[in-house]
Write a protein that binds this DNA or RNA. Structure first.
Lengths: 149, 149
DNA sequence: GCAGTTTCAATGACGTGTCAATGACATGTA
DNA sequence: TACATGTCATTGACACGTCATTGAAACTGC
């Protein structure tokens, strides 16, 4: 296209950053699948559920916490339930709602997965970033992610 | 899970960065779909094809250039062909291969899309990043993306 | 209490990406 | 030349995410 609407610096930085945006989650996701048979979304659901003492969370609240749509979580929870990682219970507080509950199997899979995942995040990312860079990246990420949608 | 295997700083930076990794492409992709009816992959295919003077590129070469699998590009090209954005021609150099060719319609859609997309990238990202940050982000991105898979 | 509105989870259609398998063709080597 | 191996695009099965819709239940104001 050769649109001159980004400066050369901006263009190159944006290109490089887009490569990272694609490559990093792909690599960490592949590690996770290979090591534990989980997808990144699986891991996110399991680890968020495990933060609650009773391993139970209302679907709508879990979706809000993870910034997922309820539809997405409903689909994903159905697939994870079919694999025995979580199960669903009626919400005693709200008959429209449901609770998602981390099964013992799901918790076991998460416990097995977590250390591998940490190694993956370190070796794919953290090891290659200085403390200064990490601090800058955190500020930058928060600033941009917090912009309105 | 409360795994203590990332320091608090690392944990927070990784969380913040993951939010960005999800939110930024989603926002820019939604802008693109709203403004031009294109997905981000559509835009990437169209703009890469348009870089060639004759708007033609062998599928395998285009896939390599974009770092896509040939399977992915084959699927995507079929959908884009059905919408009239590109068409396919036999490769005169290699009877196994095929050339993808940007149609006039596809080129028109790209020309209409490009300025909106640039505004989107600016307002969602570049405007909120200082020159120093951008330089650091570029170095960091290149360093990590260039790691082996 | 009741009607209108909002919120909940579920669902189906669709576009998307990955993986493994396939058949067509190219290439390298005896 | 003939055969083995590699590379090409395609295909089908599956997982995934979005959007629009649905029906049930909760809230709201009267």
């Amino acid at each position: 296209m050769e649109t001159a609407w980004l400066s050369a610096d901006e263009e190159q930085a944006w290109r490089a950053f887009r490569r990272l945006l694609v490559a990093l989650p792909a690599r960490i996701g592949r590690d996770l699948a290979r090591d534990s048979g989980l997808s990144a979304p699986d891991y996110e659901v399991l680890s968020t559920l495990s933060e609650k003492p009773d391993r139970r969370w209302a679907l709508r609240e879990l979706a809000a916490k993870m910034e997922w749509s309820r539809s997405r979580l409903s689909h994903h929870a159905a697939r994870m339930q079919a694999r025995g990682l979580i199960d669903k219970e009626p919400d005693p507080q709200d008959a429209r709602g449901c609770l998602l509950h981390l099964t013992d199997d799901g918790f076991g899979v998460l416990e097995q997965a977590a250390p591998h995942h940490v190694v993956s995040v370190r070796s794919r990312f953290l090891e290659h970033v200085s403390a200064d860079e990490l601090a800058m990246l955190r500020k930058l990420s928060t600033r941009i992610a917090d912009l309105p949608d």
